[in-house]
Nucleic acid binder design. Structure first.
Length: 291
DNA sequence: GTCAATGATTTACC
DNA sequence: GGTAAATCATTGAC
């Protein structure tokens, strides 16, 4: 920019009071890693997305997808911002040149120049604000897509479901795993503890609602557990270790309440299984409590 | 495309 | 804070 006494655009730029809305937008863009220095494509936001989705390791593809899209937004934002700044400077220079031309034919006060530059900058600021606003919106949409866990729900692996079902049906009298048991199950199933809690919450309520429907499944897992128990017993006999007698489960109880086996058929089958060996024996914890 | 199954979330309760 | 119950949203079989 050519030096010209009294014709500087700096003054007007610095006198503008900070717009609170613009500051909010700037802060958000900074926090999301769109504005400011490159932070690995908004790794903070990606980490937030990971935390919100349960932290499972199975969504690394989604994360890289998220980062890629955020980088895209960042690139577009910076390109557009540069374009606006360049256009603003060019236009200001152009106006300054015109004023300089005019100053040959009429006196132009510094105040008038300042006013003109101010008008130009305000106009470009409002355009910049629109750009920042739409960038924020794009980031919000992107985040909502990746943060909404329901959108990227994945069914658990067959093995994980088997492990959970085995535990559920072998603890049918009290299907409330302790915190330690939940952690153990989570580890075995490669899911989070809260996912284990969710699974048991869903299972308990769905089992209770329709015991008949789950009868086949219950029998299947009961048989499975019985086979496992038989193998364990055989191993124990081999080791000449006497087993203490077990007591059959008294029935499914919801928390603090006797669980109603409202289907007589279900109850009969379950009871029949319990006493014919098809139904699993209660599982004792290390402290002797029935789980 | 439909529909049942299923994982996640929300709300209310204790 | 943990759970029951209702509900939402996606998946997967058909």
């Amino acid at each position: 920019m050519p030096a010209h006494p009294g014709l500087s655009i700096r003054g007007a730029q610095e006198e503008d009071p900070p717009d609170p809305q613009l500051m909010r937008l700037d802060n958000m863009l900074l926090a999301e890693g769109v504005a400011g220095p490159e932070k690995g494509g908004g790794s903070a936001a990606a980490a937030a997305a990971a935390a919100a989705s349960g932290g499972a390791a199975d969504n690394s593809i989604e994360h890289s997808d998220y980062r890629a899209k955020l980088t895209q937004i960042r690139q577009i934002y910076h390109t557009e911002l540069e374009k606006y700044e360049q256009a603003c400077n060019e236009f200001t220079t152009h106006v300054m040149n015109l004023l300089r031309e005019q100053s040959r034919t009429r006196p132009i006060s510094p105040k008038e120049i300042e006013r003109m530059v101010g008008i130009i900058h305000r106009k470009f600021s409002s355009i910049q604000m629109q750009l920042k606003q739409s960038t924020c919106e794009a980031v919000m949409i992107l985040r909502s897509r990746f943060l909404d866990a329901r959108r990227k729900r994945r069914n658990f692996s067959k093995q994980a479901t088997e492990i959970l079902n085995e535990y559920f049906y072998s603890h049918l009298s009290n299907p409330y795993p302790s915190e330690e048991a939940k952690e153990e199950l989570a580890k075995k199933c490669s899911i989070t503890v809260s996912q284990v809690s969710n699974w048991f919450g869903n299972k308990r309520i769905r089992y209770k609602k329709n015991i008949g429907k789950f009868q086949e499944e219950a029998n299947l897992y009961a048989a499975k557990t019985a086979v496992n128990a038989a193998h364990a017993a055989a191993a124990a006999v081999q080791n000449s270790q006497a087993n203490s007698p077990t007591t059959p489960n008294s029935g499914f109880q919801m928390k603090d309440e006797e669980f109603q086996l409202d289907s007589a058929e279900s109850k009969n089958t379950l009871l029949s299984n319990m006493f014919t060996g098809g139904y699993p024996a209660p599982c004792y914890q290390s402290d002797g409590r029935i789980q």
